[in-house]
């Protein structure tokens, strides 16, 4: 009875007044509205997952977990598996991170550590953040018409002279391959790493820096032993955000990866990514194929979720270290 007599919303209302003044009504309305919006934002995610799951039921029933380990994608005979795409997605994201982390963290340190005056760093920082504004399809076209012809001699050089390293082996590289996708993805995610890492370094207590210098550490030691460990949680979260972006990036992958349905240890050979597969085949797909593409989308979502969970765990660990 007590529950029925006390409308829960009124008790939780931020206002302490009891009368129904207009301000109070507005407060209540605001509370209700924000609650609805908050729930709405969450339910959109749930809805997308459920809808994707429902659309992929046909493929899930037919292929089960074998979908993850099958290397065939044959729309004519309706046999689908996404192992090459999972491999390609992970490898390209990994190459992108490998290139972007040192560059990103390095630039962030350069921009925050007073190596050069502010009137130089500010425009640089601004320009870097503008990279994010380049549409990925433009980067894709740039990749096809500028970067591929430009880098092909370099790829061929690597292939010719270092082919004893499995990563650079295989036949003569043609330009569309896993490595170039990794390169362009690195360009796209570097700004994310820089801007988050930079703000992390900026909010580090100045006492850390002055203290370490006062103790006689060199600048190198201060950066490597004090600042980077102190800002590690920020760096890691920027890297994880960047990884999410790299794994989900579609146009660049579809346009540059070569879309060859195979697994090759060499990063100079064409491959495929989940996003590229979905983007290129959705329009003309038959029914079971659409279902299989949705299943592939679900796999990608799970991959991203796993990455995010790992990121959360890592960040917590490092946060504890800091304290």
């Amino acid at each position: 009875m007590t529950i029925a007599n006390s409308p829960s919303g009124f008790n939780r209302s931020p206002s302490l007044e009891k009368k129904n003044t207009p301000a109070r009504v507005i407060d209540m309305g605001f509370w209700g509205l924000t609650l609805t919006l908050a729930l709405g934002a969450g339910s959109v995610l749930v809805w997308v997952i459920i809808q994707t799951g429902l659309s992929s039921t046909q493929a899930i029933q037919q292929f089960g977990l074998g979908f993850l380990f099958n290397t065939t994608w044959d729309p004519v005979n309706n046999i689908y598996g996404v192992l090459p795409q999972i491999y390609g997605t992970i490898i390209t994201a990994f190459i992108a991170l490998l290139l972007a982390i040192p560059v990103g963290v390095g630039v962030a340190i350069f921009l925050t550590e007073d190596f050069v005056p502010r009137y130089i760093t500010t425009p640089i920082a601004f320009a870097i953040e503008l990279i994010v504004a380049i549409p990925s399809v433009v980067l894709g076209i740039w990749g096809i018409f500028v970067l591929v012809p430009f880098l092909r001699p370099f790829f061929q050089f690597l292939n010719k002279n270092l082919s004893w390293i499995p990563f650079f082996g295989g036949g003569a590289p043609r330009g569309n391959n896993l490595m170039i996708v990794g390169l362009v993805l690195a360009v796209m995610i570097v700004p994310i790493i820089i801007s988050i890492t930079r703000s992390t370094f900026e909010v580090l207590p100045p006492s850390l820096r002055s203290g370490s210098l006062a103790l006689g550490l060199t600048r190198w030691e201060t950066i490597l032993r004090v600042l980077i460990p102190a800002g590690l949680s920020g760096i890691v979260s920027s890297v994880m955000l960047a990884l999410g972006r790299a794994m989900g990036e579609t146009m660049v992958a579809a346009m540059l990866v070569g879309n060859a349905n195979r697994i090759d240890i060499s990063i100079l050979q064409p491959g495929a990514t989940i996003t590229g597969l979905i983007a290129s085949q959705f329009g003309e797909a038959g029914r079971l194929q659409v279902s299989a593409l949705m299943y592939a989308g679900l796999v990608l979502m799970v991959l991203s979720l796993v990455v995010n969970i790992i990121a959360e765990l890592i960040i917590r660990r490092f946060q504890n270290v800091e304290r």
């Binding site: 044959d74 729309p75 569309n176 346009m255 070569g258 879309n259 060859a260 064409p270 003309e284």
Partner: peptide
């Protein structure tokens, strides 16, 4: 590989659209 709007190609690299193949 049969006939279809997309097939399992035995060899080669894939380009996006006519313009991708042309490039």
């Amino acid at each position: 590989a049969g006939a279809g709007t997309s097939v399992d190609w035995p060899v080669g690299i894939g380009g996006q659209g006519n313009e991708g193949v042309a490039a």
